[in-house]
Design a protein around this nucleic acid. Sequence first.
DNA 1: CTCGTATTCCTAGCACCGCTAGACTCTGGA
DNA 2: TCCAGAGTCTAGCGGTGCTAGGAATACGAG
Lengths: 190, 190
Amino acid sequence: MPPTKRRERELAERERLIVTAARDLAEAQGWDAVTTRRLAELIEYSQPVLYSHFKGKDAIMAAVAVEGFAEVAEILRTSRTAAADASAALDAVAHAYTDFADQRPATYDAMFTLAVGLPFATPAAPPALREAFGELREAVRPLIGDDDLDVRTEVFWASLHGLTTLMRGGRLRRDGHEQRLALLLEGFGG
Amino acid sequence: MPPTKRRERELAERERLIVTAARDLAEAQGWDAVTTRRLAELIEYSQPVLYSHFKGKDAIMAAVAVEGFAEVAEILRTSRTAAADASAALDAVAHAYTDFADQRPATYDAMFTLAVGLPFATPAAPPALREAFGELREAVRPLIGDDDLDVRTEVFWASLHGLTTLMRGGRLRRDGHEQRLALLLEGFGG
DNA sequence: CTCGTATTCCTAGCACCGCTAGACTCTGGA
DNA sequence: TCCAGAGTCTAGCGGTGCTAGGAATACGAG
């Protein structure tokens, strides 16, 4: 039946609308401002419609997070492959990562700070997330080799994560960011 | 007047009671479970009494955070000074830091992840926080020297912070923690 | 000892939150 | 034309942080 197909498209479109509305509102005013009532008003439906698409607010945030994984994976890949050599690639990837966290803090929080109930370091993790981590790994590999590559990538990732979250929370001065990044890269053989 | 003095003591004691009740409840059931109603019931007063001590829930969390700064400063100092040499000291400090974050996640979040409106990288920062950072710095100093000491300490701190928060959020497997810590310390000349 | 005053505290309530039961409307097929 | 079922909304539940305003209590003056 054609009407069913059309209906499916409309539903998928509305679901996309919910996720982008949630993301945009969160980036503009923070996750606290993303309430089911405001979200319903934005998509011009009532609240229960949200629950026909997602189990709850957490599931909406998880959807924003998954979208963010794909985004960051692409950003990391382009910045890595565009670099002249391995050292420049790691530098570019590190900057791209922290820039992303800085420019999309709400999305970043949904991805990596907030408890959102997504599987991570398991095969069940979202493919986009595994891809993003893979980009970090490929940026690290040429400089430190294959020994303990995954674990070393995790340490690199954690360092970037710590730098960005502490800076955004006001725990580290913004004006030291470049220098901190440079010192971190130096430690990784940049 | 003596009664005024006694009254002041009672007020100070009640304020301590509020902070410890908030901390204990947060550690036991998470910050979401720390509501003004439950807190009021725990201290056996009504909600408005909380607001005669603190401006709001955030201020209570900030008080818990400041308490945490003092705690972690002491923990870091004892583990640092008890170590045999500089390398062992950095190792001990790193483990003490992540152990603290692991054992008191709610306090740690109040200190370093939640937006709580405390001044950090300024002279107005809580003395206990400056002291805790100072302990990290003194643990790092013998190994990397005085060049860019503060910034290098910040990077070290951020790495520890990233490792702990990502692990606790389920983003990193717990069983890789020791290895990650070892690799981080290796990078800092441990 | 009594009486106003000032402090301390609590009751009750506001606006808002995430979420859901049940009524309503509207569409498509017999 | 009628009915079944899908889709949507209204209304409401129990909870949140926070606060206005009244009750009670302790205090100093006469």
